[in-house]
């Protein structure tokens, strides 16, 4: 008697041995520690450990999507640009603004569970390849910098190249506005994924 035919869909998808985003957070944590930024290292390490815990111990209640959060728009961009114009960077108001934005974004994204995966759009690998290229190029500069014992004039990292451009407050306000707009676009993309779940 012939065995019933089985299809790939009949088998549960294997769980990957390593969660790549969590591994990336741990590697970033190590890089921050090496470059002498222990606070950044602790933030990335804590996020990785907390993610490991929440992903491994997701309960039935965790499968429920919470009501969608209404994201701010131009008002937030204008508000942070004004903070940059009035106070400048590396000030207490800027610290409070950037911290509040980060905590808010993390809370919004942490509440919902992982959704069933969906194929990445055709040729979506182009964007992924671009991101990986940037990471590798930055990593090469980072290794050279650490070997040079700090700032490397021959192999500057991207932040070494960009930082001098941000001395002017108007440029700071524009850059901060672009940063917030990019973050909001990313949060909207995540919200779009939840809507189609």
């Amino acid at each position: 008697m012939a065995a019933p035919e089985r299809h790939v869909a009949d088998y549960p998808a294997p769980r990957p041995a390593v969660d790549l985003p969590i591994a990336a957070l741990l590697i970033a944590s190590l890089a921050h520690w090496i470059r002498g930024a222990p606070a950044d290292s602790v933030i990335f390490f804590a996020a990785a450990i907390l993610l490991l815990f929440t992903e491994r111990h997701a309960g039935a209640a965790d499968d429920l999507l919470v009501p969608a959060t209404r994201l701010p728009g131009a008002s937030l961009i204008i508000a942070v640009a004004l903070v940059a114009l009035v106070f400048g960077r590396q000030t207490v108001p800027m610290f409070l603004a950037v911290t509040a934005i980060g905590v808010g974004a993390l809370v919004v994204e942490w509440r919902d569970p992982s959704l069933p995966s969906q194929p990445v759009p055709r040729r979506g690998w182009l964007w992924v390849a671009l991101a990986i290229s940037w990471c590798l190029w930055e990593l090469i500069s980072f290794v050279y910098e650490q070997a040079a014992g700090g700032l490397s004039l021959t192999h500057p990292t991207m932040s070494d190249l960009v930082d001098p451009m941000l001395d002017n407050r108007v440029v700071q306000a524009l850059a901060l506005g672009v940063w917030v707009a990019a973050g909001l676009a990313m949060l909207r993309a995540a919200a779009e994924a939840r809507r189609t779940a």
Binding site: V98, T99, G102, L106, V162
Partner: peptide, 23 residues
């Protein structure tokens, strides 16, 4: 970003850029 760990990693990476340059 359908996967929670990807969402958090991307949000944290984006936030760190602002933190690094402005704070």
């Amino acid at each position: 970003m359908r996967k929670r760990s990807t969402r958090i990693a991307l949000v944290l990476a984006w936030w760190w850029v602002g933190w690094h340059f402005f704070v």
